[in-house]
Lab assay of single mutants.
Amino acid sequence: DIIVVALYDYEAIHHEDLSFQKGDQMVVLEESGEWWKARSLATRKEGYIPSNYVARVD
Rank of each mutant, 00 (worst) to 15 (best):
R44Q: 14
E11P: 08
G47S: 00
Y8E: 07
A55Y: 14
A42D: 15
A42M: 10
D9K: 07
N52A: 11
E16S: 13
G33Y: 02
V4K: 01
Y8K: 08
A6I: 00
Y48V: 10
A12W: 00
L41G: 04
V54H: 01
S32H: 15
A12S: 14
L29A: 06
L29P: 02
I3R: 08
I2H: 03
D58W: 02
Q25R: 12
H15N: 15
R44M: 14
V27R: 08
E31R: 06
Y10K: 02
K37T: 11
E11N: 13
S40N: 13
S19M: 03
M26D: 01
Q21I: 13
L41H: 07
E31K: 15
F20G: 00
L7Q: 05
F20L: 04
T43Q: 14
I3P: 03
A42N: 15
A12Y: 08
H14M: 08
L41M: 13
A55E: 14
R56C: 14
S19I: 01
D58V: 02
Y48E: 04
A38R: 01
S32R: 07
G47I: 01
L29R: 07
V5L: 08
V4E: 00
E11A: 08
E31A: 03
Y48T: 13
E11H: 15
K45N: 09
E16G: 10
I3Q: 06
N52H: 11
R56Q: 12
K37S: 07
V4H: 12
A55L: 09
L41C: 12
Y53M: 07
K22H: 03
D9A: 09
S19K: 10
E46H: 12
E31C: 05
Y53E: 00
E31M: 06
G47C: 01
D17M: 08
K22R: 11
V28R: 01
Y48H: 10
G33M: 03
E30Y: 15
V57A: 06
K22A: 08
A12K: 15
D17A: 11
Y53F: 15
Y8D: 12
V54L: 03
Y53D: 01
E16P: 11
F20Q: 01
S32Y: 08
R39M: 09
G33H: 03
L41S: 11
F20Y: 02
V28D: 02
V54D: 01
I49M: 01
S32T: 03
V27W: 06
W35A: 12
A55P: 01
P50H: 15
H14D: 13
K45S: 11
V5P: 00
D1A: 03
A6F: 02
A38G: 07
R44K: 15
Y53P: 00
A42I: 12
H15L: 11
Y10V: 02
Q25D: 04
E16Q: 12
E31P: 15
P50Y: 12
V27M: 14
H14Q: 08
Q21M: 04
S51L: 05
W35I: 12
N52W: 09
Y10T: 02
W35H: 14
Q25M: 07
K37P: 10
A55Q: 13
W35P: 05
S32D: 13
A12R: 08
Y8G: 05
M26Y: 03
R44A: 15
D58F: 02
Q21W: 03
S51Q: 14
M26T: 01
V5T: 11
Q25F: 04
V27A: 12
G23K: 04
D17V: 08
R44E: 12
I49V: 12
D1N: 14
S32N: 03
R44I: 10
K45L: 13
Y10R: 09
L7I: 08
D24M: 03
I3T: 10
H14I: 08
I2D: 08
I3W: 03
L41D: 04
V54G: 01
V54P: 00
L29V: 10
Y8C: 07
P50C: 06
V27H: 03
A42W: 03
Y8M: 09
D17N: 15
F20P: 00
Y48W: 13
A42G: 14
Y48S: 13
A42C: 02
S40Q: 09
E30D: 12
Y10S: 04
E46F: 05
R44S: 14
R56E: 13
I49R: 01
Y48G: 03
R39D: 00
K22M: 07
Q21F: 15
Y53T: 05
L7E: 13
H14F: 05
R56V: 10
